[in-house]
Design a binder for these strands. Structure first.
Lengths: 249, 249
DNA sequence: TTTATACCGATTACCGATAATCGCTTGACA
DNA sequence: TGTCAAGCGATTATCGGTAATCGGTATAAA
């Protein structure tokens, strides 16, 4: 099985100051490898909302046992990317517009909280890393027909890194769980051209606000950042949006 | 294996308007049964923070396979009651005072949010149920040497029911995950007499605020409710507290 | 045609056993 | 005596197979 530790995203994620401090990434368990592969497929759109995730099929595909796949699917569920129904099976999460709104509302409270905590702790190393990520994202935005799902993963890593630096593991974990599906499925929206193109570098203001250390400014900038990205969700409820989110094709 | 569907707590939880609307509680899977038993033991203090949860031992004890126990432990971890370390094993969560503070801070943002959403939807049936729970809790407080862990479970059910009624599954799940460990381990504090005795019925004001439907009042009352309960955590950092939380005996 | 029911294929749930891994001990060696 | 690596016991990780369960379908009765 390919370990899934290659590619631009893995490099950027693995080369964070947090990881550099520790030792090199140790070999993951089979369960985690399967989870990573499925996660990647969901981000890439190879697995769409509503798609069935059958344990034996996946087990055969990657030459692992059903038990290993089961645990991977449990992990996926915990990440919010899959839904398990007892005795029925597992499918890729189908986000409803209301669900998206709910997740954004939670994020709008917790993300600023985490950023404020982090701003007091971020070092120059951290800022350098964040700027590197921001530059990658910005570069992608300027490229026509880029792999949006890669950008989305880097985007997630940008925010997640700040959350990790908040010093509150539980806050970080909560934000990860609540927002990961948003990052995972935003790629689908791009496919139908729903999301408007950003101008400039949307993460620059966040970095500046974090540098300023001013709580009010951070809150304002952070909320504006993602509320802008998901505007169409908050406002609209159109059928094609619904269709994309629910995985109809 | 005892199904764990007996006792006062199970009756109160199972007899909610939400459950009454549906069909009777269907038989849980073995995995869930094991999870429930372990959860019960943690609430009751039979399993203390730091205690090892060995898969084969538990499997033998309840005559189930190791795989079933593994999945139960994964569920426990997702509930925040256990911590798994790859290749090392699983232990009952050891909350640090800082962790408690972090969880309370998150709750102080999300709990009011959920309560405000719920207040618009609660029916008389709901209020009747909440008042019934509140009465049970209040009754316990007046009883010397009561089973605090039972009260704690009912307390959790009281809040959880409101969260469920918020209409946001994601918000409810998040609050459950963040706060369950707080409810589970508060029983330990009682053992050393740290928590002050409450006067009157602490949940009455919440019900009244929910009835009023006023966002500001709800926020104020809800925050006061649990910030009062955990005051010693927020303020103190004494060694005996630490000892209790970390499971030293 | 409608409804109830027994069966069937596909899939999940669970099991018992083996392989891999970890921390710790032991003992050779400087 | 201190150090380090091989070996050991306990435990987790993974496997392959069996049992239980579900939805759907074919069949039969009304």
């Amino acid at each position: 099985m390919k370990a899934g530790l290659n590619g631009r995203v893995a490099t950027l994620v693995g080369d964070s100051p947090l990881n550099r401090a520790g030792k090199l990434a140790l070999a993951d368990s089979l369960k985690t490898q399967v989870t990573e592969i499925l996660k990647e497929k969901i981000f890439a759109g190879a697995l769409k909302p509503g798609d069935a995730l059958r344990e034996m099929h996946i087990a055969r595909e990657y030459s692992v046992s059903q038990a290993t796949v089961r645990e991977a699917l449990l992990q996926l569920e915990q990440l919010g990317l899959a839904v398990r129904m007892a005795n029925r099976g597992t499918i890729v999460t189908k986000l409803t517009p209301q669900d998206v709104r709910d997740r954004l509302e939670i994020r709008s409270e917790l993300d600023p909280m985490a950023c404020i905590k982090a701003s007091a702790k971020l070092t120059e190393d951290d800022f350098a890393y964040l700027e590197r990520l921001a530059k990658e994202i910005s570069k992608d935005y300027k490229t026509p027909n880029y792999n949006f799902y890669e950008t989305s993963q880097i985007d997630f890593q940008f925010h997640r890194y700040i959350w990790q630096r908040s010093g509150s593991p539980v806050l970080c974990a909560t934000l990860e769980q609540v927002t990961l599906p948003l990052f995972a499925f935003i790629g689908l929206l791009r496919q139908v051209g729903v999301e408007e193109r950003r101008t400039g570098d949307p993460h620059k203001p966040i970095i500046e606000a974090l540098r300023s250390g001013k709580a009010r400014q951070i809150t304002q900038v952070v909320r504006a950042h993602f509320e802008n990205s998901y505007n169409h969700f908050i406002e609209s409820n159109s059928d094609d949006l619904q269709a994309v989110i629910e995985g109809r094709r």
